[in-house]
Amino acid sequence: MTASTTPTATAPAAGPTPVGVRVVGWLAAAGTLPYLAIKLDWLTGGTLGVREPGVLADPTIVVANWVTFALDLVVVALALALTHRVGDRLPPWLVLLPTWVGTGFLVPMVVAVLPGTLALLATGGLGGTWFEPWLQPVVYGGFAWQGVFLSAALAAHAGRRWSHLVAAAHPLPEVLPLLRVLTAGGVTMAAASAALHLVVGLSAGSAVALGVEATSAALALAGACGVVALVRGRPAARWAAVAAAWTGSAAMFSWGLYTVVVRMAADGFSTHGAAAAGTAQVTGLLGGFALAVAGMLALAREG
């Protein structure tokens, strides 16, 4: 017997998934429609919601629009795979990795980014040179919709496919040395990221910015606490620990990766909040990855 470091798939039950679960998948897919429609308009020469049409002709923007259009199509595929029996037959990594990244990006949209954007819109603080004020709420609203229903689809999929892993009480002894190192590093990075997010929020001079940054800090700490609970092998509230570890690590990694790529390509963190904001994202990126691997090892079973 060898130690498996990834969840193993159980045999899918006969028959289709319940209607309610399939509806959740279709609702998650429907949340991509506003974004896909806007991107398709831009990619075919339209200027919907754009005040400066010349921006869309930039080769970098064109490539970015194609990439993000394709990524939203991936969300559609994930939503349907999570809620239909065909998804139960896919390799675990093919389901878990993109869903982890996706929910990490989308859940903060639900709890912080969209509410903050709506608050700015209501107070007249949502401005911009390139885009119409309505564009961000529409796009972020679609993302938040996706986040709610994709998370629900994931919960249903994980419950029927991997509940035996979550029910296990203790990590395998042979992975404990590596598990402790990864957990310590991930927790340290998460704590640093959380502190830096709070520094950025407090220095921004905006209640909305503080709320968004405080949410990022809370998610980082939740991810750390969830992984620590899994490593300690406490049987109580295992699903809560998995949810915290998953969401917190994913949010750190996804937003860290996105922000690092975008900012390094644009200005190398040379704008407002440069040092603290950049370091918060880099530590989040590293901490999120370490905590995700630690969580995976904590759930590994003999098989």
Score class of each variant (00 low, 15 high):
T68F: 11
A277F: 10
W134R: 05
L178T: 15
F289C: 11
S203T: 14
G303Q: 10
V55S: 06
T83S: 12
S4R: 07
G54A: 14
V261C: 13
T271R: 14
T68M: 08
A13T: 14
A144L: 05
T103M: 06
G288V: 04
V261G: 13
L196P: 03
R238M: 02
G233E: 14
V111A: 14
S249G: 05
T247N: 05
H157D: 08
H197P: 01
A144F: 07
A153I: 03
L178I: 09
G205F: 11
M296S: 14
A266P: 00
A9I: 02
V107G: 02
A155D: 09
F253V: 14
Y35R: 01
H84E: 12
Q146R: 12
S249W: 02
L291T: 01
A217P: 02
L120G: 05
P171D: 11
G124H: 01
A222E: 03
D267T: 09
G185W: 00
V23S: 06
A244W: 02
A14Y: 03
P59I: 11
V262E: 10
G49L: 07
G141A: 07
P177N: 03
V181C: 05
V62Y: 01
G273M: 03
T183Y: 02
L291Q: 09
L121E: 13
A70H: 12
A156E: 01
G284Y: 00
V227G: 05
G273K: 07
L179Q: 02
T283N: 04
T188S: 15
A204F: 08
A217D: 09
W239K: 12
S193Y: 00
A241P: 09
L210F: 10
A236N: 11
A243M: 08
A14K: 13
H84P: 01
A300C: 02
F105T: 08
A168P: 07
T271N: 09
A274G: 15
R161K: 07
V187F: 06
V113S: 06
R161E: 11
A9V: 05
W246A: 04
A214F: 00
T6P: 00
M264V: 14
A192K: 08
A28S: 13
T259Y: 12
L71A: 14
V67S: 11
T99I: 06
M1Q: 05
R89W: 09
V293R: 13
A251C: 09
L178S: 15
S193F: 00
L94N: 03
W246S: 04
T6M: 03
S163A: 15
V21Y: 07
V260T: 15
T10R: 14
M109R: 01
D267A: 12
L291F: 04
G147D: 02
A204H: 08
A29V: 04
G273D: 06
A244M: 15
A144V: 11
R301T: 08
L96A: 13
D41L: 09
V227L: 10
V187A: 11
L172W: 00
A237N: 10
